[in-house]
C-alpha cells in the first residue's frame, strides 16, 4: 500500500519538474532521429534494422538508470530519504515505489522510442513482434531502475553517479552484442559483455526481428533479465542503509 503512495509521489514529483520530464522524453526522440541521419549515410548493404531497436533500448536503459540514480541521490543529500525512513516508510516500500514510479516514465520512453523507430525507419513488424519489443525495452528499463537504486546507495552526492555513466554505457555499446556479436570478441571481453543486461535484451531483439522467429529461443534471455531484476532488487534492498 505504502509502495503506491511512494510511487504516486515520485510521479507527482516528475510532473512537477516539467523541464526534466520533457527532456527525458525529448532526448530519446532526438537521439533516434540522429541515428536515422547517421544510418542514411551508410552504404545500403548494412543491416540497419539490427541496430535501430537495440540502440533505442540502450537509450531508454541508460536514461532510466541515470534519472533514477540521480533523483535517489538527491533524496539522500536533501535528507528526505532519512525522513521517509524515520517517518515510517519501509525500505521495501521505497524501492518498490521508486520502481513503479519510474516505470511510468520508462513506459512512456519505451513507447516513444519504439513508435519513432518504426515510423522513421519504416520497420514492418507484426503486432506480436511490436508487443514483444516493447516488453523487452520495458523489462530492461526495470533493470535500469533497480541498477539506479543500487548505484545511488554508493553515492554521497550527484557527482558520484557520473563515473558510472561511461562504466555502464561504453561496455554496453561495444561488448553487449549491439555492434559485434559477443561470441566474436576475445574471451574476457565476451565475459564482460555477458555480464551486461543489455546483452540479453539485444539477443531477444535480434531473435524476434528475424522474419521467422522461435519464441523458445528467447526464454533463456528473458530469464536472465528477470534474474537481473531480482538480483539487483536484492542488492538495492541490502545496500539501502537505514542507519549511519
Amino acid at each position: 500500500m505504502k509502495t503506491f503512495i511512494v510511487a504516486n509521489r515520485v510521479l507527482k514529483q516528475l510532473k512537477g519538474d516539467k523541464r526534466l520530464l520533457i527532456l527525458s522524453i525529448v532526448a530519446p526522440l532526438i537521439i533516434i532521429y540522429f541515428l536515422k541521419l547517421l544510418f542514411d549515410a551508410f552504404p545500403p548493404n548494412v543491416p540497419i534494422t539490427n541496430f535501430t531497436i537495440p540502440i533505442g533500448a540502450l537509450v531508454v536503459h541508460f536514461l532510466s538508470f541515470l534519472l533514477c540514480a540521480i533523483l535517489l541521490v538527491q533524496e539522500r543529500t536533501k535528507g528526505t530519504l532519512e525522513r521517509m525512513l524515520i517517518g515510517g516508510y519501509k525500505r521495501s516500500s521505497i524501492i518498490g515505489g521508486y520502481t513503479l514510479g519510474y516505470l511510468g516514465l520508462a513506459t512512456i520512453q519505451a513507447a516513444v522510442v519504439l513508435i519513432e523507430s518504426v515510423w522513421l525507419f519504416d520497420l514492418d513488424y507484426s503486432y506480436n513482434v511490436l508487443i514483444l519489443l516493447f516488453f523487452v525495452i520495458w523489462l530492461l528499463a526495470v533493470v535500469s531502475v533497480m541498477l539506479g537504486i543500487f548505484i545511488s546507495t554508493f553515492a554521497r552526492h550527484e557527482g558520484h553517479v557520473f563515473p558510472f555513466i561511461p562504466l555502464l554505457i561504453l561496455p554496453s555499446i561495444f561488448l553487449s552484442g549491439l555492434l559485434i556479436n559477443t561470441d566474436e570478441l576475445p574471451q574476457w571481453a565476451a565475459f564482460v559483455g555477458k555480464c551486461l543486461p543489455l546483452h540479453y535484451a539485444v539477443n531477444i531483439i535480434h531473435e524476434i526481428i528475424k522474419p521467422v522467429f522461435l519464441i523458445s529461443e528467447t526464454y533463456f534471455d528473458f530469464a536472465m533479465l528477470g534474474a537481473y531484476v531480482f538480483l539487483l532488487w536484492l542488492c538495492a534492498s541490502l545496500s539501502l542503509k537505514e542507519t549511519e
Binding site: Q13, K78, G87, G88
Partner: peptide, 21 residues
Amino acid sequence: SAALYEDLSAKQNILFFGKAQ
C-alpha cells in the same frame, strides 16, 4: 536541513509524510 520535495506543494509534502502513518 529542510528535507522537503521542492517539486511538490506544501500540502502535498505534509500529506506524503502523513500517509506513512
